[in-house]
């Protein structure tokens, strides 16, 4: 296996390169970019991130837990407070709402960590260079050694400022 790196200057050019590569059947792609780009995301077409499921699960868990906790604790040692019912649902809505947000938010970040960091950290990032956090976009293609030429060609046509083989 070989890795070819093409360095591009704009998100549109990068997106173009990605489309070309995918058109040519190269699906093992990695793009480094200094900022998020809808174009590149569209070109890669990997569907919506799975983070949204984490948020949903978090929110529902939070709100359920909050109500269960409050109602159970109210009846665990029932004390009359201000003449209000033991389980005062209107008053419990506040903490229900807050825990809904809290769990949703925390699980969202957990999703980000899992899908953005832990699950992707296995990948070899030897192609990364500091300018990718500056103004360069990197497009890395995993291919068989015999396809390197073809990849170089596509990347070159897509307007790469520089194309090199990272590992062979």
């Amino acid at each position: 296996m070989a890795q070819v790196l093409g360095i591009l200057r704009t998100p549109s050019a990068t997106a173009g390169a990605v489309r070309e590569l995918r058109g040519a059947g190269f699906e093992k792609l990695e793009v480094y970019s200094p900022c998020p780009s809808h174009e590149i995301e569209h070109a890669l077409d990997r569907g919506p991130s799975r983070v949204r499921i984490y948020t949903l699960v978090g929110c529902l868990t939070g709100v359920t837990l909050a109500y269960l906790m409050q109602i159970w604790m109210a009846y665990d040692w029932p004390l009359v407070i201000g003449g209000k019912p033991f389980a005062s649902i209107p008053a419990y809505t506040i903490i229900g709402f807050e825990m809904n947000i809290l769990f949703g938010g925390v699980l969202t970040v957990a999703g980000l960590l899992i899908h953005g960091f832990f699950l992707t950290s296995r990948r070899d990032h030897s192609a990364y260079q500091p300018s990718f956090s500056g103004d360069d976009f990197g497009c890395v293609v995993d291919c068989h050694d015999d396809q390197v030429g073809r990849v170089r060609e596509i990347l070159g046509e897509a307007g790469c400022a520089e194309v090199r083989v990272v590992s062979a």
Binding site: E30, V31, P36, E41, R46, T108, G116, F117, S121, S133
Partner: peptide, 20 residues
């Protein structure tokens, strides 16, 4: 934490920012 700006990271990142 190993941020490199890969497309996968940005995808999760944008979605998280939207949800947050």
């Amino acid at each position: 934490m190993g941020w490199r700006g890969t497309s996968e990271q940005w995808r999760a990142h944008s979605r998280s920012v939207l949800h947050l």
